[in-house]
Design a protein around this nucleic acid. Structure first.
Length: 777
RNA sequence: GCGAAUGUGGCGGAAUUGGUAGACGCGCUGGUUUCAGGUACCAGUGGGUAACACCGUGCCGGUUCGAGUCCGGCCAUUCGCACCA
């Protein structure tokens, strides 16, 4: 909204309101049954008053602080971004490049919750991949801090390691190029080399360092200084290398090339000694490759013979006794950078006094509403857009009467979505964020359906806020989202030319052969011939991509609803495959579900005259067992599908019923009514209309849900498959309650089965109740 | 490189969790209705054969009376992660 506002000058609130209206119109056209009395918008002051209120809670609990930190700065957006929003040196949403800058910013102390965020995932019904993505992002490592004395200096180097058991194999120490001790310890002979290396490392952007990382050879230079290995007193060289990150652990590691692949590569390149400390399986040669597995320790004095875990415990105890180290836990997770230099966000409810002290805006002054400004760009001197609101900016501290300035940073987009699910509980209340009784009744969210792109963003941030609210006694559950399901993406054919530009289906053509319409035909058909940019010889690549505007392969739900009806569109979306799977859009599939709905319609209505067809009748005989069976099977399956989220097979069962009903000469009215009820959540418009024509006086949504009758699912006779040696050789029809002995006899008597037994003795006969007989000869 | 998921007709997908592979839909073939096209309806549709046989769930092997399903080993695709000590 804000970027559009920058281009057009239109206020973001106007753009947002228009988008809401469009989306809402589409949702309503599709007949989605939202409770619109609970509609809310995170960008309205009535909502964000409480977002600010939660920020104040975070601040008071010591979880919001200002710090000068290296931040991810996105020049295209003129703002900083959180770690979670940056991947491969680019903003994940737009691909705009991101660089490092040192700025004073608001941070949220999510790291204080790292352990609980990892542990409490246990017991949630979440997809395994998302569960793991969060754990990996939090990145808990259990290890030890170990102190290395530096020869000739008093200040030691502390390293973090997860493998303190391999200390006896530690043959050098590596500092990150940015490590604060580097200057102090570097010897005069090495000064030039070290300075050169640091300069080169500093010049490489974050992006280069990350993308080149994978298989680039290790680089580094010695500082000339030596450290003392605390376990054996050996003097080992101190190097600097950029594979050690200043931002993780202590920015310093000890190297054990025998037990770590990176160290091994480094040792090989620079000819450093490799000492075996863990004995691997026979044939393991640590001079050739690192051995990272478990095994008895060697060359390790008091650790000799111990396996990894025991050795770790023993060496940590040994170090602790001598004040040379201690057990330590580290996380990859960093604190959450919470400021944005944007206009269209919640103002951070803080004021700054003349002496630089920060103070919360008093609760009764919330919300701090966004002021109107006429330009949404940063100020010429680089301050956030809100600095343009000069009047709004100046205020006074109510307590002291001192003049003060408002904070001009705003919160990130995630702030409102961190707690909106709680606001749904009491959207009409202005005196509280949510009602405590409602919270106890409704929470946690039973089922949360959303895209997996939120795996380490929204879902991590919201869990963090929820836990803070839990600690403050404001919510009753530790976790906000009990069951999580990621819906799959819908893909569609796209055309990409050699320069990487995408083309819409009306900008491309194929030559000769039967006509193919990319808007109607499926991918297999479309991709069976070469396509060209219209009127040129430029070949295009035909791909299946997730639908997106920039790829010109979006199917507009409004168009589909106009051509096939909203119900056919809904039904197709649910029928195309399991909810979690990504699937290819196929417009011809919508015509299939439309056909199905037409058939349902014609059971009751003669389309020529628009009057009752007479097929559905209160007097129709109810002895059509197949039809009755199909009805009850459909009721059972549809009912089950609501909890299973297996809508595709539920729709298939309804189709079976309709096929049966189409074949039948009459359909009992009571059966048809039950069918219309189970159809109604899938195709509400058609079902509602049918219900009225059946004489219903109130909306079908209020009718009780039909229950299936298990006895109606039974058949009068059942077909038993007969196998000989595990291969299907015949089928026999028997009564459902026939005795096993009779079934076995009937199976062997079958003429076709006989020919395969061919007079050989039956050694063994297996009977699976109601299913099959297998005769072993 | 590491991790996860997936692999079934021409296509999307079913398969009661070890028991008749291919439900349902799309597409296709033939027929009826129609001047015709479309719609609708009927029949057919994994390969193979005159019909059987036989073959068939990514590949190789194993367990079992019986494997899409379980076990071992490969291959491919997709999606994450990627110097975190």
């Amino acid at each position: 909204a804000e970027r559009r506002a920058e281009r057009t000058g239109e206020h973001p609130s106007v753009i947002t309101a228009r988008n809401i209206s469009t989306f809402k119109g589409q949702l309503q056209k599709l007949g989605l049954s939202y409770d619109w009395t609970r509609e809310l918008s995170t960008s309205e002051p009535r909502f964000y008053k409480w977002t600010q209120w939660i920020f104040e809670l975070l601040y008071e609990r010591g979880l919001a602080y200002r710090a000068e930190v290296p931040v991810n700065w996105c020049p295209a957006l003129n703002t900083v971004l959180a770690n979670e929003e940056v991947h491969d040196g680019k903003y994940v949403e737009t691909g705009d490049p991101v660089e490092k800058r040192l700025l004073t910013q608001w941070m949220l102390k999510i790291t204080a919750y790292a352990d609980r965020l990892a542990e409490d995932l246990e017991g949630l019904e979440w997809p395994a991949g998302t569960y793991k993505a969060q754990r990996d992002w939090i990145g808990k490592s259990i290890g030890a801090n170990v102190v290395f004395q530096v020869l000739g200096r008093t200040e030691p180097i502390t390293v973090f390691t997860t493998r303190p058991d391999t200390l006896f194999g530690g043959t050098w120490v590596v500092l990150a190029p940015e490590h604060p001790l580097v200057d102090a310890i570097t010897t005069p002979e090495q000064r030039d080399a070290v300075a050169g290396y640091r300069a080169a490392a500093g010049k490489r952007s974050e992006r280069e360092r990350v993308t080149e990382a994978a298989d680039a050879p290790k680089t580094g230079v010695p500082t000339g200084a030596f450290a003392v290995n605390p376990v054996n007193g050996k003097h080992i060289p101190i190097w600097i290398a950029d594979y050690v990150l200043a931002s993780y652990g202590t920015g310093a590691v000890f190297a054990c090339p025998a037990g770590d692949e990176r160290d091994h590569a480094f040792a090989t390149k620079f000819g450093l000694p490799i000492v075996e400390v863990v004995r691997g399986p026979d044939g393991t040669d640590v001079q050739a490759a690192a051995y990272t597995g478990d095994g008895p320790h060697v060359n390790s004095e008091f650790l000799d013979g111990l396996h990894n875990e025991d050795a770790k415990a023993k060496v940590i105890a040994w170090l602790a006794e001598r004040g040379l180290g201690e057990a330590s836990v580290r996380y990859k997770l960093r604190d959450w950078l919470f400021s944005r230099q944007r206009y269209w966000g919640e103002p951070i409810p803080m004021i700054e006094l003349a002496d630089g002290a920060m103070k919360l805006v008093p609760r009764d002054e919330l919300p701090v509403a966004l002021p109107q400004i006429d330009e949404y760009k940063p100020t010429p001197d680089g301050k956030p857009p809100l600095a343009r609101a000069t009047e709004w900016l100046t205020t006074v501290d109510r307590q002291t009467g001192q003049p003060a300035r408002r904070e001009t940073n705003t919160m990130p987009q995630w702030a409102g979505s961190c707690w909106y699910y709680l606001r749904f509980l009491s959207p009409e209340r202005d005196d509280v964020a949510w009602d405590a009784d409602e919270e106890r009744y409704w929470m946690p969210v039973d089922l949360y359906v959303g895209g997996n792109e939120h795996a380490v963003l929204h879902l991590l941030y919201a869990r963090f806020w929820h836990k803070v609210l839990y600690d403050a006694g404001l919510v009753s559950t530790k976790e906000p989202f009990q069951r999580l399901v990621h819906q799959g993406m819908i893909h569609n054919t796209s055309f990409k030319d050699a320069r990487g530009k995408y083309h819409g289906p009306d900008e491309v053509e194929h030559r000769g052969g039967a006509p193919i319409d990319p808007a109607k035909d499926n991918f297999a058909r479309v991709s069976s011939v070469p396509w060209y940019v219209k009127g040129t010889g430029d070949l295009v690549e035909i791909k299946l991509d997730k639908m997106s505007k920039s790829r010109y392969n979006v199917v507009n739900p409004d168009d589909m609803a106009a051509e096939y009806g909203a119900d056919a569109m809904r039904l197709y979306e649910l029928f195309m495959g399991p909810l979690e799977d990504g699937v290819e859009w196929e417009t011809s599939g919508v015509s299939g579900t439309r056909r199905f709905l037409d058939r349902v319609w014609r059971l009751l209505v003669d389309p020529e005259t628009d009057t009752p067809s007479g097929k559905v009748s209160a007097d129709a005989p109810t002895d059509n067992r197949e039809l009755e069976r199909a009805l009850h099977a459909a009721i059972k399956k549809v009912t089950q599908s609501v909890t299973d989220l297996r809508f595709n097979t539920a729709i298939a069962e309804m189709m079976v019923f309709v096929n049966e009903a189409t074949k039948a000469s009459t359909v009992p009215r009571a059966w048809f009514e039950m069918f219309v009820k189970i159809l109604s959540p899938f195709a509400p418009h058609v079902a509602e209309e049918l219900w009225q024509r059946l004489g219903g006086t109130r909306t079908i949504a209020f009718e009780p849900w039909p229950a299936h009758d298990e006895t109606k699912l039974a058949r009068d006779t059942i077909v038993i498959a007969v196998q000989v040696g595990g291969k299907l050789r015949g089928q026999i029809e028997v009564a459902p309650d026939a005795a096993e002995a009779d079934i076995l006899a009937a199976a062997q008597a079958d003429a076709k089965v006989q020919s395969f037994i061919a007079g050989k003795p039956v050694k063994k006969a297996i009977y699976v109740k109601g299913r099959l007989v297998n005769l072993v000869v």
